[in-house]
Write a protein that binds this DNA or RNA. Sequence first.
DNA 1: TGTTAGCACTCTCTTTGGTTGAGTGCTAAA
DNA 2: TTTAGCACTCAACCAAAGAGAGTGCTAACA
Lengths: 352, 352
Amino acid sequence: MSLDKRKVTILKAIINSYIDNAEAVGSRTISKKYELGVSPATIRNEMSDLEEMGFLIQPHTSSGRIPTDKAYRYYVDDLWKKVMGSNNPNISQLKNIIEEKSEEMDSVFKNSVRILSQFTKYTSFIIAPQLKQSTIKRIQLVPITDKRILLVLVLQNNIVKQVMLNLNNPIPLDQIDKISASLSEKLNGYKLEDMDSIKDSLIQELYHLREGSTESLLVMLPFLMEQISKFEDFNVYSDGLTNILDLPEYNDVVKAREFISFVEDKNSLAKLFQFTGENDLNISIGRENEYEELRDCSLITATYKLNGKLIGKIGVIGPTRMDYNKVILTVKSISNAMNEIISHNFDEENKE
Amino acid sequence: MSLDKRKVTILKAIINSYIDNAEAVGSRTISKKYELGVSPATIRNEMSDLEEMGFLIQPHTSSGRIPTDKAYRYYVDDLWKKVMGSNNPNISQLKNIIEEKSEEMDSVFKNSVRILSQFTKYTSFIIAPQLKQSTIKRIQLVPITDKRILLVLVLQNNIVKQVMLNLNNPIPLDQIDKISASLSEKLNGYKLEDMDSIKDSLIQELYHLREGSTESLLVMLPFLMEQISKFEDFNVYSDGLTNILDLPEYNDVVKAREFISFVEDKNSLAKLFQFTGENDLNISIGRENEYEELRDCSLITATYKLNGKLIGKIGVIGPTRMDYNKVILTVKSISNAMNEIISHNFDEENKE
DNA sequence: TGTTAGCACTCTCTTTGGTTGAGTGCTAAA
DNA sequence: TTTAGCACTCAACCAAAGAGAGTGCTAACA
């Protein structure tokens, strides 16, 4: 049996209708709402074929039909070609919204994920870059009191991280700039993940040196390096967790609770993202997902890059009955906008 | 009719039972679970009296009884005396948890509110201090690139704020320290809210001065002051929004959605906090709340102070059928712990 | 040969009515 | 003043009936 043109039209009509209403679709509905010029009986025959081919199922004998994961997969693959070809018009608009108040990398992420959930009305996520691989460009200490020092860490790609250091003993404030300079010099070029391994030899080296400010430097260094190596390996932001409460498939509180508990757990999210592909855009539908908890959900992710290198992913989770068209376009546009913002603001090699 | 001892015992028993089970309480239940030595019939009579006095209501003629707001108010006022007298034992424990990774003021807030919702299983909030009233102690600029400068602002009470400045024109990096010093000097002692009003005169002054680094200073100053005056007037953090999904009173998704939408709105929360009293501990029950949306909720807030001055509030929202004992103790303990942490870490006059 | 009208059939959803059980209020006795 | 007894009420549960949406099949039609 082949998927001829009329079958495709009917299948798409069913999927669209189900996406809209979350209700099993009957032959009459299709014949009325989508003018196909054929009677319900004909459509029934076609639907029966589509069911046999694995695109539709009937929840019970006398109900309408619901698309299967296979149907969504077909639908999405078809959509894909069109979407990938089309240039989304409002990227510059998106960029403006994302960039608003986004002077730091983190705000770019938070804004993006917020907008993504607002636009799609689903739950959105972003996994922020693993900084451990980044190299240190400069270190600057800012004294708050004589025992509290703010450490500002500038990484190679102009990402900035800050840590507050609470020292046990006061440090002479007039030496701060000197210490900053030495630190910058000593640690320049090392990766964050190297801190643990070079710690001992660096202390050793300084110990033998004994210049003017070495004393204070020796006091701070262990603190500082420990703080740096404690940086989170990844960072997941999410938004719109409670959007699913508006969906009919989650009008059972227990189900909603389950979903929310799952997506509130940053660790499972991080793992989830690992499973997704590394293409510009990745879609997994229903049981294609690794996690049992997401067997009724689809996951649409996009990657974002800095300097050509993949540094993180952004995505949306919603029911398999998802408005794929809208979501795919939105995810794609936002990741594009992010890429531009990031490369413009943070990429060393890419300055005006 | 007077509220004699037995009536009080029965009333408390009913409230406790309802807090536990969220189910209307009947005379038999009371007589069985709480050994009062009287028969259900007697209890029925007393319950009838209590209803007449406004402490109980019957959802329908043949059901058990439910406590009214008035009952909770009585219950809480009674509890109050005991709680206020008792010293909570585990403040130092709490302090440890809150202080973990809390080198900055913001983390203290976030940790506190997280713990509060974890302990109470309700929704918790904190309103962070209005910084506009704080005065500037020091300003330090940290160059990221020649057009991106991180502005670190140290306030009188050692609170630190950071803003990234994206300049249109590069600034000579070797002047940064000089500029920082001038800025610190010029702006020292001003409040954040003053920025707008002193902006023009300051620029005027610098314009006439014309020292070495004045040029760059003039470029930066408008940027900088604008950023500062854009600081949020308040900042509300919340946690445990979805805890209510576990409560039987919210097993209707629509109701749950309503609640969550309300408490997700930072503005209404901020207003809500304004209505609460400024005692160390404030409780408003059911219809005592200003907001219609919270007519079935109780709000327990505590204040926290820096240097004796109220700088913010922390609180819990839950159903009127709330475990007041636990919540009151927790809110009180956490606000106490916060007070100690804050005064220890951020209070200028209170150093070791 | 593909399409369609007609019809019997299936299954969920809603409504209806009866039953159960928890709980009450009242009365009369202890 | 307390309590046992009893009639009464009402939500919650359950089963049966009916409505409605939808199907599959068959036979007629273009």
